[in-house]
Structure formats: C-alpha cells, structure tokens
Amino acid sequence: MMADLIKVGMADYKVGRNPASLISYGLGSCVGIALYDPVAKVGGLAHIMLPDSTQARSSENPAKFADTCLPLMVAELVKNGATRSRLVAKIAGGAQMFVFANATDIMRVGERNSQTVRMVLKKLELRLVAEDCGGNYGRTVELKLENGIFRIKTIDKGEKEL
C-alpha cells in the first residue's frame, strides 16, 4: 500500500500519523517546521512565511507566522495522540534566494525567519534537534511519520536526511 502523502501549502500546516508523510514543495525564504512524537508516531509540518505576527499589519491566517502557527499545530498534535513533552522539532529553509551586493532587509528575510523560528521554539519549550537553514537555494521537505526522518531535497545541492 502506498503511504499517504499529505501536501502542505505555503502559509499552512498539516498533522498526520504513521504511515503517512507530510510534504511541502519549494521552500525558499520560508521555513518548514516539523514536529514529531516518536512514540505515538504522530507529527506535523508547518510552512511559515513570516516570523512574527505582532509585526504584521493584518492577517486572518495564523498559519502564516511562526509564533501563531506553532501553538495551533501543537494543540492539534496533542489532540491526535501526541505527548507534548516528547515532541522534537526539525527545521529547514530560510534561504536568501537572490544575492544582491547591498542586501536590504527585504532580501534577508530568510535569515530573520529561521532566527525567529528558533526563538519561538525555545519559548514554547519545543526541542530543536536538527536543522538545515540558509544558503541561496530552494528546498522541498518531507516528514516521514513512520520514523520521523525529515528529508530535504534540492535541485543542485543534493538530498539529505535529518
């Protein structure tokens, strides 16, 4: 049987359980955040665009920001049988896609994204165990709920598993 492949779009999150996998295509400066409970084999994947909802002018979509998306995802994971203290986090993305000589803040958003994601995880007491952030290339990320492996695919920079 083919295991389910659940797609996670930009500014969205999904949770699932073994044997499904969660996948998000083409992350650039966005950050993919995987949370996984290795005992319950339940996990979630978020594709956040921005670090901080308090600095945004308006939004009706909490899944867009790290600080508002993660509590929602954690609650849904717990509802699906995960134990909060067992959750481990892996993150990837936060690239700077275009390199300019004088990069403005707009261009450095990827770096700020991954920095803030680390801070938000810490604040929520979620353990960050592995990450693959930065660079100037896109990533497709997949969380396998069978074993918690976070696979990162790129076009020219190979593939790795966290």
Binding site: M10, G26, L27, A95
Partner: peptide
C-alpha cells in the same frame, strides 16, 4: 539578480513581503 531554482522558492521572496500586509 538571477536564480535557477524551484518556482515556489523564488516566488517566496515577493510573497513574504506581501504577507506582512495581508493574505
């Protein structure tokens, strides 16, 4: 500036900027 990559990754640069104001 030039990038050869996935469409989503390249578009994220402008989408993120717009995301600060709305959906």
């Amino acid at each position: 500036a030039l990038a050869m990559d996935m469409a989503g990754a390249i578009l994220s640069v402008i989408l993120i900027q717009l995301g600060q104001m709305g959906d």
